[in-house]
């Protein structure tokens, strides 16, 4: 593992194309840093409110019923500030800040830009804890895939083992989790299991923690997704292990290696490369499947975009959603490709 990381990091081994890519990335980051330093400050943005709006905000201060929502979103190089009242007669004012200026964003391109910033900000889950938006999607998918890979490897070894009972149990597990929908599994874990065993997921966290419900739901989701992913990964791992030629087993046996050492030192390392492409697929499927957490109150990218669509009656909300998904998918495809390349060095 250590040498793998080193290999990934060793700049000398990079191809020219990789270097160029990195230079571009660094330049983009540098430009972003400069532009983000130039954008108007939060105070400047908030000072843009019209006199009537200022008056309403002032009125709010004295009242226990707040009517004005002040939204301030800062997104790398731009920021967005809006003042909106609620109710049947809505009044809103929107501003977009970019390179030292704040622009009115109530219509036309300004409105579009403002919406993009606001929607992207919300979908990424900025300004909130890890259980929101893209952060939730990433956390859930990476953790549950990690659980899935470990569990799947054990299940695959169990399924191909000569112990008939173990093999049947593992086979049954895989059959069950592949044969039932993930959403139902999620419901069972979140609703049925606590009901049967008499606990609530939120009990895992401190009383008075306002986020306890979401954290509990996240743990339940992690378990459901991990168990489900385990079944799919098991089949991937099994297929990869069984694709390694028999001669490798024989050579190891002739040298006196035990079954477990043969698996650990010879077979599994060779099968990793063959597992990577299907595991990458599984992971990307998982990113998309993560939207099912809406069913247990968590807000991932898809749920947030649906929510925005409902409350703002806006259809361009899906544009940033698509872009965020594509960036995430591209990033992980790149990582998986690097892993695959690393493990195919010897071929």
């Amino acid at each position: 593992m250590k040498s793998f990381l080193k290999g990934l990091i060793n700049v000398k081994n990079w191809k020219k194309k990789t270097k160029v890519t990195w230079i571009i990335v660094l330049v983009v980051i540098a430009v972003c840093i400069v532009l983000s330093a130039l954008k108007p400050s939060e105070a400047d943005m908030k000072a843009m409110a019209s006199e009537e709006m200022q008056a309403m905000i002032k009125a709010d201060e004295g009242s226990s019923r707040k009517r004005v929502t002040v939204t301030y979103n800062s997104l790398i190089i731009v920021n967005y500030c809006s003042f909106s009242t609620s109710g049947a007669k809505e009044v809103t004012e929107k501003y977009v800040g970019f390179v030292g200026h704040a622009f009115q964003a109530d219509e036309g391109f300004g409105k579009f830009a403002g919406q993009m910033v606001n929607y992207t900000y919300r979908m990424l889950g900025c300004g909130e804890n890890l259980l929101h938006g893209a952060k939730l999607t990433l956390l859930l998918t990476t953790l549950s895939t990690a659980i899935g890979v470990v569990l799947g490897t054990l299940l695959a070894l169990g399924k191909i083992s000569k112990n008939k009972v173990l093999s049947k149990v593992c086979g049954g597990y895989i059959f069950f989790f592949r044969g039932t929908p993930l959403l139902i599994q999620l419901f069972v874990i979140y609703y049925s299991v606590p009901a049967i065993f008499g606990f609530a997921w939120r009990d895992l966290f401190a009383v008075g923690d306002t986020q306890a419900v979401y954290k509990g739901a996240f743990i339940a989701a992690l378990i459901a997704y991990g168990l489900n992913s385990g079944a799919y990964c098991a089949e991937i791992v099994r297929a990869a292990i069984q694709s390694i030629e028999k001669g490798q087993h024989e050579a190891a046996k002739a040298l006196g290696l035990s079954y477990s050492k043969t698996m650990r030192l010879i077979i599994i390392p060779q099968s990793v490369r063959r597992m990577v492409p299907p595991l990458c697929n599984e992971f990307i499927m998982m990113i998309k499947d993560a939207s099912m957490v809406f069913a247990i109150s968590l807000m991932d990218i898809t749920t947030i975009s649906k929510n925005i669509m409902t409350s703002e009656i806006s259809y361009i909300v899906f544009l940033p959603a698509l872009i965020i998904y594509l960036i995430i998918t591209a990033f992980f495809t790149w990582i998986f490709n690097a892993i695959e390349k690393k493990f195919s060095l010897y071929e």
Binding site: G247, A251, Q270
Partner: peptide, 8 residues
Amino acid sequence: QRFNLFPH
């Protein structure tokens, strides 16, 4: 016959 060296 086919050597069966460990390729990795």
